[in-house]
Design a binder for these strands. Structure first.
Length: 973
RNA sequence: AGGAGCGUAGCUCAGUUGGUUCAGAGCGCUUCAGUCACAUUGAAGAGGUCAUCGGUUCGAGCCCGAUCGUUCCUACCA
């Protein structure tokens, strides 16, 4: 059978993925095994695969496949998120391209478009995950807005409302003037911007006496028009909503303003000067304008001092005509000097930034601007639409968070839920300790509509309630559906019982709240709702699969999602939603920049898969992805992954290409006998595998996946390919490969199978391909379900591996001699091992010497013969001789304290050899001095543990012996 | 502004409780290698005052303090 020398992923990946699907190998049902559950962080339903997903999903797949091979019942549940604001924005944009405005559509019409878009794009990303090899149980695919999930959301909303945890109220919220919706604090991102700081003149309304003298330290401004205060702001347009000026009562500069009234420039409103220590004396002039409707802090001041809030904006952040009417009203009350006022009508309807520019220009022209400075500012922007958010007072639904924080802080802090890396515990704690109520309503249509109904009369006049009964009008009823809401309404407001529902007049209707819920109000239930734990508490699946094992996600959504899932988990299941959280880093390009469409530095994962294979891409991603660290992604890492695949492929080609000697060979015939080198190699590699398995288990237990990958990478490439296979490779005779003996062949296939299993979680496709080809497999069998259990490594294993490291050192030293002397690998050499020389009396510690022999490599006995033949084969030696004194003209080297020499005859370069030895001697002498200095320090000998002192003595003895050995060699040269 | 993290080879990073010849790995780089699995390869090799300064200790890459550089998170400085 001819096998290509290059591995072609494209030919095998699709085939095996289909095989896995056909044989239901991803599917999971509750059974007697230990469950291992992962729920996918649901990608946006209309999203496409990007590098961040590749990282995240690869990690999950590695964990899931690893658990599955441990014999656990692995269940990875896939799904998508409706991503309300992001998806709605996309739909709005697409409609706009077709010339359709959202405002012209009814809710139902819009939702039809949104669903169509979802059908069209939904699930693309899930298809792409298959290309990556993800072993999700696709039969469980869910969507945050599908039937069961939606019902769960509504049920939870009603439940929390009835618990008194959800309330409705007017609050300052983050308003997105583009999406026309409120946002949670977490949806606001701050951007650094270069702006201006405007210093505006607020003239005193009451004229100061002509003999006015400001007190010591006061800073007073005066011009032709009179005395004025100066207020610095980045947002001059908001002066239209000014209702007060605030100073710090302790500010010496502004004492003269106490108790005064000032005139808002342009607007002409007369406002009081109030005092509050909130104001920073150092900033600007120490005078703060107070605009309760448009700034969170001003809002708090407004509440405190009972100030009016004048909302100057429409919902889309254009100037409202309220500014003009407010101006007329205030001008009617108090007359102000000419020249201070501009008719605000000219600004009505202008966009906020255009207005800012205009009003600044107008103020400069009118002499109302003291100065304008450059200023660097951080502006809060909508995470989704990117436009600066506008603090806005509006009626919204909130979830009280204190209770949620109370139940979710401890489990993380005491490691019931473990974070990897643990540093995110700090971030988590800080957020919970400063928790604010969660604004859960969004003025969007795409999402779960809030299950609240308002009782409204039809027609007029309003039917009146009997004395003593509360009027139902405008009251809200929260219920799971309209019928229930109707029932509740009648119960609560008996007056309604006699009224018709609907109709033209004299009756009542229930009008459902227009708002939808924040997307995260459905995602926080994900680990529960996927197993129907909300609608059907205590069902078999939720009992079996919950809590899930591992959550893999980015630290950017620790508040949005992780913390809230923990809250919901304890609130609704009384248990953590997951035991471990693995925080991935952010995928950046190799220059450390975030990947973005505009930079064009974000490769298309599917193209990468086409180029390097899914296994190669997965490996490239994992090679530099320690938990929590950002990943500087470089295509060359995928290339490395592909090269590794090719290496595995060719090792397989080698092994499967061997002819195997017949089992029945004549007694005593050399044919079919296992060579010494192969015998020791198989023993060694079996031991090596057991040690590696322990290392892998340790890496996995600590979620050090990139190190686990590096462990198998080196195990396969260096240990198995470069050492083991070279050792057992049959010799060529007359240009023809000899058959390999049965014992070696069988051992090699077994090793190969174990290696494939170790690599499978990282590289599912190539390992399945080769596993299937390694032995005859039954239909439906798969490496996916092959369990990997190796016996624990023994001390004998460790000793053998240590001996083998010495073998490698000797071989490497001989190869280096070849390389330096230009001796071709095919020319055989001989090796001399010199017997240990007794140290000159009086030097070193008597006790330390005897240990030397035990660590020297044995070259006799069964093991010694094996190790010798291994050295001979790998270094191409014709003989290893144990000698009392090495040959003249040989290149020598030390391994441990044992001296080896390769006789080179005329090839030896005595000068070079001498130089090398002298350099080594110098180094050793320096080393010896430092060791002896340490040992002569009484405090060291007294204080350090005995074992450490003993180690130093041994170092001393070893160094002395080596020095003696080198001196002797030098003397003989 | 506050908090957290990081700084080890050209690059990306390990380095666990302070103690073994501890200064490591992968990639890259240099030299050599062309029929016999693989050039997507093999062999050999060079590279670092562990950011800087000080302290604790018999002993510091590791612990403490300061400084510099850098990254991230949180926050209402108009």
């Amino acid at each position: 059978m001819e096998i290509s020398s290059k591995y072609s992923p494209a030919e095998v990946e699709g085939k095996w993925y289909q095989y896995w699907l056909d044989n239901k190998l991803f599917s999971s049902k509750p059974d007697g095994r230990e469950p291992y559950t992962v729920v996918i962080p649901p990608p946006n339903v209309t999203g496409v695969l990007h590098m961040g997903h590749v990282l995240n999903e690869t990690i999950q797949d590695i964990l899931v496949r690893h658990a599955r091979m441990e014999g656990k019942n692995a269940c990875w549940v896939p799904g998508t998120d409706h991503a309300s604001i992001a998806t709605e924005a996309k739909v709005v944009n697409r409609l706009a391209e077709q010339g359709v405005k959202k405002a012209d559509l009814t809710r139902e019409e819009f939702l039809k478009h949104a669903w169509a878009w979802t059908e069209e794009h939904g699930g693309i990303i899930l298809k792409q995950l298959r290309k990556l090899g993800c072993s999700c149980d696709w039969d469980r695919t869910a969507f945050t807005m599908d039937g069961p999930r939606s019902e769960s959301v509504i049920k939870v909303f009603v439940d929390l409302y009835r618990k008194g945890l959800i309330y409705r109220g007017v609050r300052m919220v983050n308003w997105d003037p583009k999406a026309l919706t409120a946002l949670s604090d977490e949806e606001v991102v701050y951007k650094e911007e270069h702006t201006k700081l405007y210093y505006m003149k607020y003239y005193l309304a009451d004229s100061l006496p002509s003999d006015f003298v400001a007190g010591e330290g006061n800073v007073v401004h005066k011009d032709d028009r009179g005395y004025y205060a100066v207020v610095a702001t980045t947002r001059p347009e908001t002066i239209m909503g000014d209702v007060a000026m605030c100073i710090n009562p302790n500010d010496p500069k502004n004492q003269w303003l106490k108790g005064k009234k000032v005139i808002v420039p342009v607007v002409g409103r007369v406002i009081p000067v109030i005092e509050d220590e909130y104001v920073d004396i150092e900033f600007g002039t120490g005078c703060l304008k107070v605009t309760p409707a448009h700034d969170v802090n001003d809002y708090m001041l407004g509440e405190k001092y009972n100030l009016e809030a004048i909302d100057i904006f429409n919902d889309d952040a254009t100037l409202s005509d309220r500014i003009a009417s407010a101006q007329q009203k205030s001008l009617a009350e108090v007359s102000v000097p000419e020249g201070l006022v501009i008719d605000l009508q000219k600004y009505v309807g202008t966009e906020r930034f255009a207005c800012r520019k205009q009003i600044a220009e107008d103020m400069v022209a009118a002499g109302l601007m003291e100065k304008i400075e450059d200023y660097d500012n951080k502006i809060g922007c909508s995470e989704r639409t990117g436009v600066p958010i506008e603090p806005k007072l509006s009626m919204q639904w909130f979830l009280k968070m204190q209770h949620m924080a109370d139940i979710s802080l401890a489990p993380v802090m005491n490691n019931d839920i473990q974070f990897y890396p643990a540093k995110y515990k700090n971030t988590y704690r800080h957020w919970l300790e400063n928790i604010k109520d969660w604004c859960i309503s969004r003025q969007l249509w795409w999402g779960h509509r809030i299950p609240a109904w308002y009782i409204e009369p039809t027609g007029s006049p309003l039917p009146t309630s009997p004395i003593g009964e509360e009027s139902p009008w405008g009251k809200v009823i929260v219920a799971e559906n309209e019928e229930e809401a109707y029932k509740l309404a009648l119960e609560k407001y008996p007056v309604l019982q006699s009224l018709p529902l609907g109709g033209d007049g004299g009756g009542f209707t229930l009008r459902q709240d227009e708002d939808a819920l924040d997307t995260w109000f459905s995602s926080w239930l994900w680990p529960i709702s996927l197993f129907d734990g909300i609608r059907n508490p205590g069902n078999e699946e939720i009992k079996y699969y919950y809590p899930t094992a591992d959550l893999v996600t980015g630290p950017d959504i620790i508040f949005f999602w992780v913390a809230r899932m923990i809250m919901a988990g304890y609130e609704y299941e009384g248990k953590m939603p997951f035991r471990h959280v693995y925080f991935t880093g952010i995928v950046r390009d190799k220059l450390g920049r975030k990947m973005s469409k505009s930079l064009g530095n974000s490769p298309d994962p599917l193209e990468l898969i086409e180029k390097f294979g899914a296994d190669g891409v997965r490996m490239g991603m994992m090679l530099s992805a320690p938990a929590g660290n950002d990943i500087l992604f470089d295509e060359s890492l995928c290339e490395q992954g592909r090269n590794f695949n090719n290496k595995i492929w060719n090792a397989f080609r080698l092994v499967k290409g061997w002819a195997v000697a017949p089992v029945t060979v004549p007694e005593g015939s050399p044919e079919g006998q296992q060579p010494e080198a192969a015998r020791i190699a198989t023993q060694w590699f079996a031991a090596k595998l057991r040690l590696a398995a322990e290392e892998l288990a340790d890496d996995f237990s600590k979620y050090r996946l990139s190190e686990a990958l590096m462990t198998v990478y080196k195990l396969f490439w260096d240990e198995f390919s470069s050492w083991y296979l070279e050792l057992v490779k049959p010799a060529y005779v007359d240009g023809k490969p000899q058959p390999v003996d049965r014992a070696t062949y069988d051992a090699t296939l077994q090793f190969f199978e174990i290696l494939l299993k170790m690599m499978h979680p990282f590289m599912p496709f190539i390992t399945e391909e080769l596993w299937q080809a390694l032995y005859d497999r039954k239909a439906g069998e798969s490496i996916m379900r092959a369990e990997l259990h190796l016996p624990a490594a023994t001390d004998a294993d460790r000793q053998l591996c240590a001996d083998f490291e010495t073998v490698k050192e000797i071989v490497t030293a001989i190869r280096a001699i070849r390389s330096q002397k230009n001796i071709p690998p095919r020319e055989p050499l001989t090796l001399e091992k010199t017997l240990p020389q007794p140290l000159p009396s009086g030097r070193g510690e008597a006790g330390a010497q005897s240990s030397n022999d035990s660590e020297a490599l044995p070259l006799t006995g069964e093991r010694g013969e094996g190790l010798s033949s291994a050295i001979m084969k790998m270094a191409n030696l014709s003989a290893i001789n144990v000698v009392a004194e090495k040959s003249k003209g040989s290149a020598s080297f030390l391994v441990g304290t044992t001296e080896y020499a390769v006789p080179l005859g005329s090839l030896i370069d005595l000068d070079a050899e001498r130089k090398k030895l002298e350099a080594e001697l110098e180094h050793l002498q320096g080393f010896l001095v430092s060791v002896e200095k340490k040992l002569s320090n009484e405090r060291f000998v007294q204080n350090a543990p005995a074992a450490v002192v003993e180690m130093e003595r041994k170092k001393q003895a070893d160094a002395q012996q080596k020095i003696a050995s080198i001196r002797e060699t030098l003397a003989n040269l």
